[in-house]
């Protein structure tokens, strides 16, 4: 890993040469980190000011004294047209969407991947293509017909309607397929000689073996589900089903109002919408990175 830079002339002293290169590297990285850090941090500092200040002066660099108040209001004050929805309810809905989507996706795609990889099926190739055609085709492309389908099934304003259509893509299946293919063949053979049938092999060996992979894909899918925007916007018109990210739309609309809206509260809510996915990605970043980069192999 210790790669020295040879761009500077050879006659300079070796220690100094390394130092200059390293300083350049660190400068670039610090600038990059600032680029990524500053916008959300400014949102946080700004959220600590009162609405009038924010409306007049915009983003704030310093911490004000309204942080607790704004967050409290965002979480517990009922808002919206019907005055029934508060931040806590939206937070709960976000968790239901994130976890429900991730868990559903993992179960369904693991089973399908297992069937495709480990069984001699005449229609395996067909099933493979039926599933993997959907790999890159996001819900956004077929948004209108999907919405119509949900409406015909009477699933608008239900968690089922919110979660299940999002599962209808092959990303998870593809991920597990790749992982199963990398599991040594001999493991299944040893299990067969040990008298484990296909179901036992799946439950006793393959699922425990995939623990890290499951954790990794859970993180990715949780973030993906949590961050869904267009689909919840269409499917949930009943405010009691609103997720935080869905609520952003309301925040944006309120932010552009001509009167002085509750800017601090809106920002606080946006920050709450960021925290859980960011936390899970930061705390479990080794799993997350592994899952993300191995999903394409």
């Amino acid at each position: 890993m210790a790669e020295t830079t040879l761009e500077t002339p050879v006659e300079t002293h070796r220690p100094r040469r390394i130092k200059w290169g390293a300083i350049g590297d660190h400068t670039v990285l610090i600038l990059g980190a600032l680029l990524m850090m500053i916008p959300p941090l400014l949102a946080l500092t700004t959220a600590s000011h009162d609405a009038v200040t924010i409306h007049r002066e915009g983003l704030q660099l310093t911490l004000g004294d309204n942080l607790g108040k704004n967050f409290h209001a965002a979480m517990f004050e009922k808002g919206g047209f019907t005055q029934t929805v508060d931040g806590t309810l939206m937070l709960m809905n976000s968790f239901i969407l994130g976890i429900g989507f991730a868990v559903g996706k993992i179960i369904i795609s693991m089973m399908a991947a297992y069937a495709i990889v480990y069984f001699r099926l005449r229609f395996a190739t067909l099933a493979f293509w039926v599933i993997f055609t959907t790999l890159l085709l996001p819900l956004e492309v077929r948004i209108l017909p999907s919405y119509e389908a949900i409406q015909k099934l009477g699933l608008t304003n239900t968690y089922t309607g919110l979660i299940v259509p999002l599962i209808a893509s092959a990303t998870g299946t593809f991920f597990f397929r790749q992982f199963f293919m990398s599991v040594p063949e001999e493991l299944a053979e040893a299990a067969r000689i040990d008298g484990a049938g296909p179901w036992k092999f799946f439950v006793d060996i393959l699922v425990p073996l995939s623990r890290t992979m499951i954790a990794a894909i859970f993180i990715i899918m949780f973030v993906f589900g949590w961050n869904q925007y267009l689909w919840p916007t269409l499917i949930t018109t009943d405010e009691s089903f609103f997720t935080l990210v869905r609520g952003i739309k309301q925040i944006v609309l309120s932010y552009t109002d001509s009167q002085i809206p509750e800017h601090g509260q809106a920002l606080a809510l946006a920050i709450v919408a960021m925290i859980p996915p960011v936390a899970i990605v930061v705390f479990f970043q080794n799993w997350f990175v592994k899952g993300l980069t191995e999903s394409d192999k």
Binding site: M36, P40, Y229, I248, A273, Q285
Partner: peptide, 14 residues
């Protein structure tokens, strides 16, 4: 790495 990647988790509308 941590500082440069965490923005991944922020939703596009946010």
């Amino acid at each position: 790495r941590t500082l440069l990647m965490w923005v991944y988790a922020i939703a596009p509308p946010v």
